[in-house]
Design a binder for these strands. Structure first.
Lengths: 209, 209
DNA sequence: GTCTATAGGTTGATAGAC
DNA sequence: GTCTATCAACCTATAGAC
């Protein structure tokens, strides 16, 4: 399984996460993967198709796991808490990211980069997630005006994306205070923070003069 | 004031925000600014120096405003609430970003991109912010283990950065539900969410077997 | 200060031998 | 499937006329 194609995918994943898609040259990838430059265009057709393949390989399993966890949580409607819904959203991506070194920033980049790449991913995977998680949030007892709910979901995704993007530098940034070896602990902190934020009282808007 | 130098800065700001630093060529900038290609290297010395100038122009005022607002809040120690501290952190950047169309994604990108650019900005501006805001948080009544506090600050910055990065596409992404014309309203929502998150009870960590 | 012209390097992609 | 060699297009930066 350590054939050329896989080695290219592995190297591309690391470098895309570290430097972004457009700043990563095919030459950098083939050097890191120790394969020939032409191998990229043989196994994939273009750099764009390689990007798709890199995303495809990781996002599919995470999306499936998210929906699985949500299924489990929703199987017991009475016990469906806000925390369980948020955990189903956050845990799969955090665990996947922490399990494979260098994967986190790529995941974060996908969530935090608007434009062509996000749309490509969003339309293909996130639509299913959104259509399942929004109703689940409501069923879990969240009572918010639609606009407020959308903003708070946005804040939540931002927290999650930020954790992933900064994962490689987090220990250094915090002077060793924050470590990443325990993905479960990170998810727990994130869930506690976001659940409390979701339950915050809705600010009354002042009337304009 | 609409001289060549300013036109370059304006165009660079827009394009850096939209496509990132490395994906934006000097040609794209000079075309957008309707100036000659060589003007960039005349007025600035290099692309790297241009990036610095673009950042410098916007971040300085925001940093000053942040510290000003914190000064005002801390002038009345009894009334120093968590909300006021978070607002002093978030409001200046949101208001600056919303005031100038196209500026938001650049601000978000600065906050959400680790690596050379963040370090350049972080060391020059954020160190002052951090050294003032962390103590202010404690004085406002936050009682958290240092590790937990750092994580929650990280979550908060992530929410803020995400709002900025996605500002241009937020209305479309929410099917028109979330608009950006009222920066104050966004800050209020963000403050409510993050303050509640900061006040969340600390999750008890399970002992490892 | 503004321009043209160009140097010198890197990129993605491909043709064709093995 | 893997390689070398190469193309055309792009990039940043600069030299030098005006």
């Amino acid at each position: 399984m350590s054939d050329t194609k896989t080695r290219i995918l592995d190297a591309a994943e690391q470098l895309f996460g570290r430097n972004g898609f457009e700043s990563t040259s095919l030459r950098a990838i083939t050097t890191e993967a120790q394969v020939n430059l032409a191998a990229v265009n043989y196994h994939f057709q273009s750099k764009d198709a390689l990007i798709d393949a890199v995303l495809e390989r990781r996002i599919g399993p995470v999306t499936r796991r998210r929906l699985e966890m949500l299924d489990v949580a929703e199987a017991d409607p009475a016990g469906l808490t806000l925390e369980k819904v948020i955990e189903a959203f956050a845990a799969p991506v955090v665990e996947a990211a922490m399990g494979q070194p260098g994967l986190a920033p790529l995941m974060g980049r996908i969530m935090a980069t608007p434009g062509a790449f996000l749309e490509r991913v969003f339309l293909r995977y996130m639509e299913a997630v959104k259509s399942r998680f929004l109703p689940a949030l409501l069923r879990s007892g969240v009572r918010l005006p639609p606009e407020e709910l959308f903003w708070r979901l946005h804040f939540m995704v931002g927290s999650l994306a930020h954790v992933l993007v900064f994962a490689p530098v987090m220990p250094a940034m915090s002077n060793g205070l924050c470590q990443l070896n325990d993905g479960r602990a990170i998810v727990n902190r994130l869930v506690a923070f976001c659940a409390a934020g979701m339950r915050a009282p809705v600010e009354q808007m002042e009337k304009e003069a």
